[in-house]
Design a protein around this nucleic acid. Sequence first.
DNA 1: ATTCATTGTCATAAATATGTCACATTGACG
DNA 2: CGTCAATGTGACATATTTATGACAATGAAT
Lengths: 228, 228
Amino acid sequence: MPANILVVEDEPAIQELLTLNLTQAGHNALRALSVEQAQLLMRETLPDLIILDWMLPGMSGIEFARKLKGDELTKAIPIIMLTARGEEADKVRGLEVGADDYVTKPFSPRELNARIKAVLRRRAPQMTDDPIEVGGLRLDPMTHRVSGNGATLDLGPTEFRLLHYLMSNPERVHSRSQVLDRVWGDRVFVEDRTVDVHIRRLRRALTETGHEQLIQTVRGVGYRFSAH
Amino acid sequence: MPANILVVEDEPAIQELLTLNLTQAGHNALRALSVEQAQLLMRETLPDLIILDWMLPGMSGIEFARKLKGDELTKAIPIIMLTARGEEADKVRGLEVGADDYVTKPFSPRELNARIKAVLRRRAPQMTDDPIEVGGLRLDPMTHRVSGNGATLDLGPTEFRLLHYLMSNPERVHSRSQVLDRVWGDRVFVEDRTVDVHIRRLRRALTETGHEQLIQTVRGVGYRFSAH
DNA sequence: ATTCATTGTCATAAATATGTCACATTGACG
DNA sequence: CGTCAATGTGACATATTTATGACAATGAAT
């Protein structure tokens, strides 16, 4: 839950305020006074979130945002834009280059915290390489094996990735488009309904080895993996 | 983001100016020339914000404000006072009766918009993804689960959204049209009474799991979720 | 070339949710 | 107490969503 948050802000007073606020909220704040410093820092650690001032000396915040969103390595990092003007135009431009949210100065700490929380929550669920065990099922990403009580499941590549994703994030509900994003990846020229079919195949494989109702349908929303 | 804003102003020219300004900012303007008209309108829809002239024929603005802030149903609605005099004393009196902000005539549309925006941002809690717990009920949007003492509630999509809305704003009466706006969203080609039916279904699910009277009827007004 | 596994899409069935109506209750008020 | 309006309730036709089986395209393995 604690996250690494990079603050890019040239005004020392504001930066101080921000980092104080962040650390109090239990996060780990990294600070940079310019885009250059930020890039340097990011060579070390990729942050979970970037709070980026609109106006910066040297490269502007918006330019930096565009750059980050264009890079495969950093495109997934959410960005919250910090802008002095509350103009609608700026908001649009900010969101255009891929900022995930924006806050206008002066901001209330409460509001900022709320937005940080919201953005972090949207953070794409991760899939680890460690073996996972949920509800009597054991999935090992390394060996590409899934074993249920005794037997071993026979899954196709897509089914495996789907199950891997679901087991990496049990309990929570995943919409079809979320699943497509995470399991199918970029080329989402695939129908939503396709997810249903693969869920079906997965379910068949599961019930064949005696696992019932591990994957639940949440009508109108999506699917959920959970041991009841 | 768009909000219902009630303008109470007896001077037609100013009212025109105000509503024009509001609609241009993407809001929905309701107009009243007097307190009486305003009260009539508010029986239909509770606005998100009231812009209230200080001097009005019949009941004065300040009196109306006091009344509104004294009523459980309307006390949460923010009020921006509109006054010709810039006297400090008036400001104090306005804030005393619960006005959230005030603007002196003549006002610049920009300033007014800024204040509206600020006030609206402070307004009633939105629906978030955070788990909510009220009256022994726990609703978790992420897992899409509702659990009462022990048992888990089985709700349809609409019922879930409805409960989520009510629990996000407990201890507060919601008119049917408010509920329709927030829970049904755009497609409001739906009868008011439909809300009743869904409330009914929700209540059934609640009582089946031993929760009594969590949803109360306020005759002539709407419904309220509260732990007594 | 042939076989086989996998995958995405459909068509159709099955399940479930939704909105409205008719009628029953309830409450406010003279 | 009687009347009117507001709300509670059950039923039901319709709409929406999901499950399922079949199929053709693809590509890898034999």
